[in-house]
């Protein structure tokens, strides 16, 4: 064995990659240190934090069950419908945007970019902030909540849908084009059967998320169980808040079980 070969060391990454990684770690460390040193924390609030926490739980127990009939039951139904209807509207609205964003359906880079911008804007504004805007437009109530859920979901559903469309195989599409099929038929008989499984799995996934999100929209007046929660919080009736939290917890667990059951059965 030559001297050179013996001395050669093997390295997994190139120099540029190693420098890049090192820089990222350093930057991350700098960011953390900077945040720690500059973030504003009011120390006076911290002295009684353990007492406040204990007080919080003491006042939550026993849970005020009478609040269930008073408000929570009805609000819960509203939350369910807000999430479901919002998801359905989002699915309907995201299809055209996804088609515009998919490069194989829409060969125009300008239109792709416009669609991408719509998707990113929808995703970057939180559902709670969407709800604020819609409450200002439509007034408090479930209509604002439904639209907030729908507009927040367009970005999520549209992005995943566009990716699924771009992954569609060329074969069936070329066959349909060769047979002289009009554009609508190509979409319906060429793309749709290929995209359908991921469409339903994205829909189910988003519905699960939307149930969680619609549970808090009421905090800004957009209907659902959040309104009950907000009422309890504003009146400092922590026993009512406790009931709301318990109900939200159970609903979230139930939807998670339901969606995973549906997913394993169908998709």
């Amino acid at each position: 064995m030559s001297e050179l070969a013996r001395l050669r060391t093997w390295q997994r990454f190139t120099l540029a990659q190693r420098v890049g990684r090192g820089l990222t770690y350093v930057l991350a460390a700098v960011a953390v240190v900077w945040s720690l040193r500059t973030i504003e924390v009011i120390p006076e609030f911290l002295y009684d934090a353990p007492e406040q926490t204990a007080d919080l739980f003491r006042r939550m127990w026993p849970i005020d069950w009478s609040f269930w009939h008073e408000m929570v039951a009805e609000a819960l139904v509203e939350t369910f419908h807000t999430a479901t209807l919002g998801t359905i509207i989002a699915l309907v609205l995201s299809v055209p945007v996804a088609l515009l964003a998919a490069r194989n359906v829409t060969p125009s880079p300008t239109l792709n970019l416009v669609a991408k911008f719509i998707l990113v804007s929808s995703r970057s504004v939180n559902s709670l902030i969407w709800a604020l805007l819609f409450v200002a437009v439509f007034g408090p109530g479930a209509l604002a909540g439904t639209l907030a859920i729908a507009f927040r979901s367009i970005g999520f559903v549209g992005k995943l849908l566009a990716e699924a469309i771009e992954e569609a195989q060329r074969g069936p599409l070329e066959a349909l084009t060769a047979a002289g099929a009009p554009r609508a038929s190509i979409l319906l008989k060429g793309y749709w059967p290929q995209v359908e499984p991921s469409f339903w799995s994205v829909a189910l996934f988003r519905w699960d998320i939307n149930i969680r999100e619609s549970a808090v929209l009421g905090l800004v007046g957009a209907g659902g169980i959040g309104v009950a929660l907000d009422t309890g919080l504003n009146n400092l009736y922590w026993d009512q808040v406790g009931l709301c939290l318990l109900v939200i917890f159970l609903v979230v667990i139930a939807t998670e079980i339901a969606t995973s059951a549906i997913r394993s059965r169908i998709i």
Partner: peptide, 14 residues
């Protein structure tokens, strides 16, 4: 948001 509400009660606004 819900966790945030509980923490606001525990450690104050901010």
């Amino acid at each position: 948001v819900i966790t945030a509400i509980l923490f606001v009660k525990a450690v104050g606004f901010g």
